[in-house]
Design a binder for these strands. Structure first.
Lengths: 232, 232
DNA sequence: TCATGATTTTTGTGATAACAAAATTATGAA
DNA sequence: TTCATAATTTTGTTATCACAAAAATCATGA
């Protein structure tokens, strides 16, 4: 388990290879981060099973795992849904992100090589380009890759998978307002500051930059969520 | 899911009520924290199922969940075992504990009432008494309760369950050397400092005390583990 | 004694069916 | 309409079985 970390995403309907439970898990997970389902959408075992063309057992296992991770929520003994916007949950996730991603950043900084810096620079360029061309989905994807390229440096596998679960949790509940969220040149300044500090091998400076990035994202997401909630 | 938080432990073989998966989960979990199994002990689905007198499905689900939480480890495609002593894992868990429990402490401090302070004082007295009478198991239990009484104050449910998973992970791998670990008046000074700072409503002071407690525990556990590893 | 290959046993996975409980829909009265 | 209740459908849970793959055991030869 915990093969979360280095999976390169697969664009379309991948053929089930390996354990069907894992296939079901990553399928639902991808649909969640792509915003296929609206908040409140029900995910009954049999429907998921039929959709993915697997039996009930793998579907059940995948759903349970996602509930456990917080990417889906149980609102009744027999009803699992995609989570609604929830500012308290967003706040909690953000606080945990600051603590955990801050830790990973600081610990990883000293292990950074030139390769890493190059990769980060390349990623940042891709992000900027994607934003200019309004390909928000790509921008979000590379933004995630930027963060995790740093977090992977510290070689703490469980820390990494815990952070991934947090991203998934936020992504599941807030994906549908990512477009408006991404509008404002998301995180460019913070990313560049992080890279510079990384070159200087200054752990607390890198951490500060990343924390700023997280907080900026939180503020923007919160604002978008509040406006959305007001409108409804 | 995540009914982790406020379960009062049940001393003996509880009767399966509610979902059998949950029953299996808490049974194994309790056995793990009680140190019933030596590190390296295999936990095959069918054996667990037979032991708990449930079908294979609930046993499978419980085991998978514990693997996911890190309380059990997979060492092969078909073999999960109780984890061995692993100093790197202990270090990683400690770093995460410092980040997360520090967060919970700081956030909870301002919400503390007099009731809480009284409860903490009572717990600390129980701990000291248990240690004097060499009832280490009781001391460990109340020590955990002490910590979580503080962590619960911030009302961040997912943060809490993540912390619980960390305790379980450390407990599963290191339980068998808790006696030697607990010998030295574990944490008394730090706990008292935390209580005082809590009365003063000084978040960073409470956090510092709790972090000290975590670090002291880490050092002692590490030392005991190193000696154990050398002896073998 | 130890390594290596073959054989047997064990084990995880996934499909399926039965059951009880929950969720939904229909019904009826105020 | 609105609310409570009854009927019906949906749904999660669990046990069981078959199968393939892994693990353990045994046999063989150096």
């Amino acid at each position: 388990m915990n093969d979360n970390t280095t999976e390169e995403e697969s664009s379309a309907s991948e053929l089930p290879s390996g354990r069907l439970s894992d296939f079901a898990y990553s399928s639902i997970k991808e649909q969640l981060t792509r915003g296929v389902y609206k908040p409140g959408h029900k995910l009954p075992i049999r429907s998921v099973a039929e959709m993915l063309k697997v039996g009930a057992t793998p579907a059940r296992e995948a759903i349970n795992r996602l509930v456990f991770e917080g990417a889906l929520v149980m609102v009744g003994p027999k009803t699992v849904i995609v989570p609604h916007l929830d500012l308290a949950a967003l706040y909690e996730a953000t606080q945990m992100r600051l603590a955990l991603e801050g830790l990973a950043t600081e610990r990883g900084t000293l292990c950074a090589t030139n390769d890493v810096v190059d990769k980060l620079l390349a990623l940042q360029e891709k992000i900027t380009l994607s934003l200019d061309e309004k390909r928000y989905s790509d921008a979000l994807h590379d933004n995630k890759e930027f963060h995790f390229t740093i977090y992977r440096l510290c070689e703490m596998p469980h820390l990494l998978s815990t952070i991934e679960a947090l991203w998934l949790r936020v992504g599941a509940a807030f994906h549908d307002l990512y477009p408006e969220f991404a509008e404002a040149k998301y995180g460019v300044h913070n990313h560049l500051a992080a890279i510079e500090a990384l070159v200087d091998k200054d752990p607390s400076a890198v951490r500060a930059a990343m924390e700023n990035d997280i907080r900026d994202g939180y503020r923007r997401l919160k604002k978008a969520a509040q406006e959305r909630l007001k409108r409804e």
